[in-house]
Design a protein around this nucleic acid. Structure first.
Lengths: 225, 225
DNA sequence: TTGACAACCGAACAATTGTTCGTTATAATG
DNA sequence: CATTATAACGAACAATTGTTCGGTTGTCAA
């Protein structure tokens, strides 16, 4: 889901925009600037403490929050362009691979759950899910799910699966052979329908006992180049 | 690309871990805590300024940077689990849609280039590219590129395209009909080969004059559920 | 011009916050 | 047990930083 639209924005004076820009840059590099630094940034002289007026205005317009009588205690809520300024990212552990047919080779869990590789993602991509982990796809066995070799799949191990969810499932075929696929899951009168994402492919029908759900697919990422 | 491996980590004392955790939480919520707050968080009494020892140790271990004689001037470099703590995300403007066959309907540019929808992504996903924009895929015309209805494609308008790059290209057919596709681009002896990502599909060959490159595809994102 | 008003400057003040230093407590070591 | 070292505490101090207030400048309207 893309972000909200912030086209309705209060106008910013030149000083206000300068202060916001300086704030954003400084905070990204570590911590909040003092009012004197901000004052300089706004072109208000070395100790022009008129900066409070500017800050008050920015508070009124909803861009920042200021804690009174505390040093460098300004919270940046939105950047000059009006977008929310958040510091919310999450590291998703990459726990293994999905290989053609084979059961997923889930990496050994060390004592530190974050010891291995991981991917940093913005909260906005993760849809509020918890218990997330990532698998790297090896080979082209998932092409019917529109997932290519090298793609990264983010899954949640949350247990409740609803009809229509895309899941990583292990299917035991009639010949006893196991295979793992990414499919849309439908539970319907006594059997399980696994529907490929590619509408040109046919669904698989099987008995519930043949299917083990590994997790629900939340996100697929394909980095190119 | 997943992040580096941080399995080699200095051990943290309980106090150090507590301080780091408190720092991370506080900074995520806006700004850096003072040493007194940190002291409490580490269980070191209301004004136990032994906190400096803990901070020095964390500096030595590379977790934080401290600016001397400045209030709340602590830079968090890594979270307690050893992962880099960065605040680097970018908002990619969603400028329009790719619709089956039709030329991309690029949204009207307002005076504010960030007025419309946008997607916040971590730098790690963007591979250092600049001039990025996002297109939302409508319909299933890109399935041969393993891109589904609803997927988001991130492109860079950087002009230099190399052989093998995945590009958004507009192709003028022999009948004069325009169509837009996502394909791998190869320039080879006098003609252009556009190779679908799906290895089961065939390439398209055409004359350079028939092809207009819109941009290079950097990332494909599919949000599910 | 004159008055009202807002923007801007600078200095004094007050509060917070970081630093230093001496002391006490606890643990380790012989 | 004595000794040493380290951790912890708290108060005094110093530096930074936020706040207030009086003043200057400039603009606009009457």
């Amino acid at each position: 889901m893309p972000a909200l639209i912030f086209s309705i924005m209060d106008e910013l004076t030149q000083a206000e925009a300068a202060v916001l820009e300086h704030l954003a840059q400084h905070i990204r590099r570590g911590y909040c600037p003092s009012r004197e630094e901000l004052s300089r940034a706004a072109g208000l002289g070395p100790r022009g403490y008129h900066i409070n007026k500017v800050l008050d205005s920015l508070v009124a317009k909803g861009y920042i929050e200021v804690e009174r009588n505390r040093a460098r205690a300004i919270r940046l809520l939105r950047t000059p362009d009006g977008r929310p300024f958040r510091l919310e990212t999450r590291w998703i552990p990459l726990v293994g691979h999905i290989v053609a047919g084979l059961p997923a080779q889930v990496a050994v869990q060390t004592d530190n759950p974050f010891a291995g590789e991981a991917i940093e993602l913005t909260e906005g991509l993760l849809g509020g899910y918890d218990n997330l982990y990532a698998l790297r796809v090896k080979g082209q066995s998932m092409i019917d799910a529109l997932v290519n070799d090298g793609d990264t799949v983010i899954l949640t191990s949350t247990i409740d699966i609803h009809n229509g969810d895309m899941v990583a499932a292990t299917v035991v075929g009639d010949d006893g052979q196991e295979s793992r696929t990414l499919k849309h899951y439908y539970r319907e009168n006594g059997h399980v329908r696994l529907q490929p994402a590619n509408p040109m492919m046919d669904a698989i029908y099987c008995h519930p006992s043949q299917v083990t759900i590994e997790g629900k697919v939340v996100l697929v990422i394909r980095q190119i180049g």
